[in-house]
Nucleic acid binder design. Structure first.
Length: 357
DNA sequence: AATACGGGGTG
DNA sequence: CACCCAGTATT
């Protein structure tokens, strides 16, 4: 199997993409890139990496930032617990490790937001530890090449793949090996239409020989997608809008949105909202526009989102509602600075930005 | 062992 | 539409 290792490492050194986080040994930048790239494609994550490293060139800077600002920088990337853990981790490294990342897998994995993959990536890339990275790319490459049929989602499968990768990783160049397996999975051994004609290890590949590329890796998953109907109320008074910070748990934790009323089916009138908000006296409000329904597809739910605009006639009524909702009011300039879910940001752009002409 | 957690690209 | 992306934390 030494042949397999040599061939993919040689291929990597010749074909690697010159990504910015490959040009550094700084564990801070390696960590940042790895967290950004969790479940995220390189092209989507790269602009965020540039933003973060520009605004926060080192971990002290990031640790001193507010969580809200970190979330705002993360806005649009998704899986926001990554941003919250990123911030927690930065503080932990500064406060518990004098601003220096631990230099080994065992300690790295104790930090928030750093799991088996990320710990192995930092340990090997920054500190040259001989520990295998196993991500989606590696599952694919190894299962196809070696004909491993274990379900990659199962505990046993994860163990089998890690041990296979760990048995292959060379002591003299662990980082290049890890980069090579992942880059191969990303560029050659792709999920669909793998580029077998360009593959340096086509010879010896189980899946190529048996035309099993479409079947491997085996991944058994049952994802039930639920439809949800979200109705947002945009309560406005003289250029100020009521918003609130979402709870610490659940979807969009810590981000800001409007008062939310969920329904079983799409709403097309204000009435259910008038019932939902007893503090809302219809005499004090002008019922405005009902937006068209936004469809927002997430991994395990499909959201149908409608925005209902209310304009308040007097300040007292506005204050009363705000208080009843335990929310705050913001003008557009302030809203710009708040971290918001994509769908909220989209609505705001559609509604309050004048199209150029 | 299963589920929750975003947003976007591919075929 | 189905699948999946340089996964992790919680249940």
């Amino acid at each position: 199997m030494q042949d397999f290792v040599n061939k993919i490492v040689r291929w990597y050194k010749k074909n690697l993409r010159p990504l910015p986080w490959r040009a550094t040994n700084d564990p801070y930048r390696i960590w940042l890139s790895e967290v950004i790239l969790q479940q995220t494609r390189v092209e989507q994550g790269q602009p965020y990496y540039e933003q973060f490293t520009t605004e926060h060139p080192n971990i002290q800077s990031l640790a001193e930032e507010s969580e809200e600002k970190v979330l705002r920088l993360w806005q649009g990337l998704g899986y926001y617990s990554r941003a919250r853990n990123l911030h927690k981790c930065a503080k932990a490294v500064v406060n518990l490790h004098a601003g220096h990342f631990p230099n080994n897998y065992k300690e790295l994995i104790k930090l928030p937001g750093i799991g088996p993959y990320t710990a192995a990536a930092i340990a090997s890339f920054a500190f040259n530890e001989q520990i295998a990275c196993v991500d989606g790319n590696v599952y694919r490459l190894l299962s196809r090449y070696f004909g491993i049929e274990d379900d990659i989602a199962s505990g046993k499968g994860q163990k089998v793949f890690f041990e296979k990768a760990q048995s292959l990783i060379p002591a003299d160049q662990p980082a290049d090996f890890n980069q090579a397996t992942m880059e191969m999975g990303a560029m050659i051994c792709t999920p669909k239409k793998p580029r077998c004609e360009q593959c340096p290890v086509q010879q010896g590949c189980y899946a190529f020989e048996h035309q099993a590329q479409g079947r491997l890796p085996v991944k058994i998953k049952k994802l039930k997608i639920k439809n949800r109907y979200l109705n947002y109320s945009v309560f406005q008074f003289e250029q100020r809008i009521i918003m609130n910070r979402r709870p610490e748990k659940g979807i969009w934790a810590g981000l800001y949105d409007f008062p939310l009323h969920e329904s079983k089916l799409s709403l097309d009138s204000f009435e259910p909202l008038l019932e939902a908000y007893p503090a809302l006296n219809p005499n004090d409000w002008l019922l405005g526009n009902i937006s068209s329904e936004y469809k927002h597809i997430l991994t395990h739910q499909k959201l149908f989102v409608t925005f209902f605009s209310f304009n308040c006639k007097n300040k007292a009524a506005y204050e009363a509602l705000k208080q009843a909702l335990k929310a705050e009011e913001y003008n557009l300039e302030e809203i710009e600075e708040l971290p918001k879910p994509k769908i909220i940001d989209q609505f705001l752009s559609d509604t309050f930005l004048q199209p150029e002409r």
